[in-house]
């Protein structure tokens, strides 16, 4: 299993910086997922070795955290918050609009693999609701119309 030199460098730092090596596990998983797209069997096995845990222990941790996934997602993961503050300002309309526009439902991936859609819990942008996160990018005060422009922006990136 080969990671990019940048990721490898980050890994070296992570596995040595904590009082206990195991503390590096969650950041290792998240950074590897950012690069590979999801946590493949190979990634899990490699990371288990790096932190000296069994694969089962690593999978046990993965299953707890909502950002970690063991299945492929779209290149851009569209996460629409529908928690209370966002719901009151039209988040459900934004989510339904995304469903229609992308033709996929919660946790599904578009056929071309560009987008996946998720209805998520509070992402801490409540005063600028409704809020949407695409991968790690925050988009604030979103409306269905603004959502069109946001999605177009990402699909154009793929085409370039």
């Amino acid at each position: 299993m080969n990671f990019s030199p940048e990721l490898e460098q980050r890994f070296q730092k992570l596995v040595t910086q904590y009082p206990w090596k195991r503390s590096a596990l969650i950041p290792l998983l998240l950074y590897a997922q950012d690069e590979v797209g999801y946590l493949t069997d190979d990634v899990i096995s490699e990371i288990a070795k790096r932190v000296e845990l069994t694969e089962l222990e690593v999978r046990n941790v993965i299953s707890y955290y909502s950002l970690l996934r063991t299945k492929p997602a779209g290149k851009y993961v569209v996460q629409v918050c529908t928690n209370i503050s966002c719901m009151l300002r039209g988040a459900e309309e934004v989510f339904d609009h995304c469903r229609e526009k992308l033709g996929v439902d919660h946790k599904e991936v578009t056929r071309d693999g560009t987008f996946s859609l998720e209805e998520v819990e509070c992402i801490g942008a409540c005063s600028w609701a409704p809020a949407v996160q695409v991968n790690y990018d925050f988009h604030l005060n979103v409306t269905p119309q603004k959502m069109d422009a946001i999605l177009d922006q990402y699909s154009n990136k793929t085409k370039q």
């Binding site: 209370i84 819990e121 509070c122 801490g124 942008a125 409540c126 005063s127 600028w128």
Partner: peptide
């Protein structure tokens, strides 16, 4: 870990 719904100050 700011995650309490409606709380967006620590950010």
């Amino acid at each position: 870990d700011e995650s309490e719904p409606a709380t967006c100050k620590d950010r």
